[in-house]
Design a protein around this nucleic acid. Structure first.
Length: 218
DNA sequence: CTCCCGATAT
DNA sequence: ATATCAGGAG
């Protein structure tokens, strides 16, 4: 209790207030990825790694007309799939991952996208972040918080965690966020991160959280 | 930790 | 010129 800190170390933003303000700012916050079934969402999220949703949607618009089932992804040579997803970036890795994922769906899950974290993470190209998006958006299972680059950055700036490892960030957020709000909260942070709390030049003067953000420069 | 891909913002 | 973009694998 004797420790006397400088004023530079401001308090973490209170989660309920953060959630309330962002909910008001972004009503109906949802993914901007275009999808119409779990397989499409899974593919879209795999493609979204280090890419923008605009580029991913440009790719999937035609991709999802050509590939409608796991079998369809395996019916072409890897090189053909690579060309079909090229603009999304990392096209060799992602084509290989999608075909490996499709193969495992057929061999281990009767061609269906599994509904558990354990099974999803066992799919090639699917990590915890991708699994949480699919669970939350396609199946309404909100067990986890999606920790992507935006959620990680905002959680740190808001003082909701001191960790940078995505899994530790999620562990710190879980007790703060009611289970039913976890998927929505992820979307809120992602949207706010894209539009206001940007990685390079955050628009603190336009931020509805600036008065309670430890990192605000306003 | 590096690599994977290339467009865009700063 | 360099950091960043709805990450994951080796």
């Amino acid at each position: 209790m004797t420790e006397r800190r400088e004023q530079t170390e401001r308090r973490a933003a209170p989660f309920p207030e953060v959630f309330a303000r962002l909910s008001a700012e972004y009503p109906g916050a949802d993914t901007e990825l275009r999808w119409s079934d779990p397989l499409e969402l899974l593919v879209a999220v795999i493609l979204s790694a280090q890419s923008t949703d605009v580029r991913v949607n440009a790719v999937t618009e035609s991709l999802f007309r050509k590939y409608r089932s796991p079998e369809d992804y395996l019916a072409v040579a890897q090189e053909e799939l690579e060309e079909d997803i090229r603009p999304a970036g990392f096209f060799r890795n992602k084509a290989k991952a999608i075909q490996g994922m499709a193969r495992r769906l057929i061999e281990a899950h009767d061609g269906e996208v599994p509904r558990s974290m354990e099974d999803l993470v066992a799919l090639p190209g699917v990590g915890r972040k991708t699994a949480n998006v699919v669970l939350g958006n396609a199946f309404g299972i909100n067990e986890g918080v999606v920790v992507d680059t935006h959620v990680k950055r905002l959680a740190n700036r808001l003082g909701l965690t001191e960790n940078t490892d995505p899994e530790k960030v999620e562990r710190d957020l879980l007790p703060l966020v009611p289970e039913n709000d976890r998927t929505v909260f992820s979307h809120l942070l992602i949207l706010h991160g894209r539009r206001v709390c940007k990685a390079r030049k955050p628009l603190c003067e336009a931020c509805v959280l600036s008065d309670l953000c430890p990192s605000s420069r306003v």
